[in-house]
Design a protein around this nucleic acid. Structure first.
Lengths: 116, 116
DNA sequence: ACAACATATCAGTGAGGAATGATATGGACC
DNA sequence: GGTCCATATCATTCCTCACTGATATGTTGT
């Protein structure tokens, strides 16, 4: 009934929460990490190897993903093993790919916001 | 078989395409616009009224959404009516809400990247 | 305790996006 | 044709995020 200023009581509107969650996914490095973790849980140095990102960069992104609750971690000896926290994340990534089947060309062409 | 540098032939990796699409959704203004359009097609000035964004701002975001293929437009007299381009977009937004049911607190708390 | 590996943290830098304000384009009606 | 309304475009400013490099913390094995 109030589209513009909804849910002010929870500290953020539903839209702001959605935007923030989307932002968690809106980075190639984080997506590469999530993609790798979708196949199997991995330790940080394994993620570094697979994604070819720097170690500190991976660590920074992992912290973000961890804080957001998108991944979870368990210590395993001297390693720390990260994993996808919920199958809904995999589902979401699949949906995006499905949407990309339709809008891929447009997205690549877009030059305004959100791009390149 | 090649996770890091896949699909170079299409000009962008699958991951880069996904990231760019996510970015299209990763902004409160664009989400507010999409949210409004999910209920019904709207002319620009109607979007402006509902979202309380400035006209030029809405126009800029609409161009981005249009280029990305997330919305479509039809001229209707002196108005230009925008609408969601595919039901998959609505589906994606619903999935995000479902994921938010699980990770909402974490996302709001996250302070590293993707935030505030 | 020490060495070697694994991971986290932090300051600084650079680039890109989001909003604004002013202006331009374009259709409709008199 | 001219005015009004609807929409698009452009330059500028500000702000935030992503990366780097160096360093700190932590764990295992000897």
């Amino acid at each position: 009934m109030d589209h513009v200023v909804a849910d002010r009581n929870t500290g953020a509107t539903a839209i702001e929460r959605r935007a923030k969650l989307f932002r968690g996914f809106a980075d190639p490095s984080r997506l590469a990490i999530l993609d790798a973790l979708c196949e199997a849980p991995l330790a940080v140095h394994e993620i570094v190897t697979r994604t070819e990102l720097s170690q500190s960069n991976v660590s920074n992104h992992l912290r973000c993903l961890l804080d957001c609750g998108l991944v979870a971690s368990d210590r395993d000896g001297r390693f720390i093993r990260y994993r996808i926290s919920s199958p809904r994340i995999t589902a979401l990534l699949n949906d995006v790919d499905a949407l990309l089947d339709v809008v891929a060309e447009g997205v690549e062409a877009c030059d305004n916001y959100c791009g390149e």
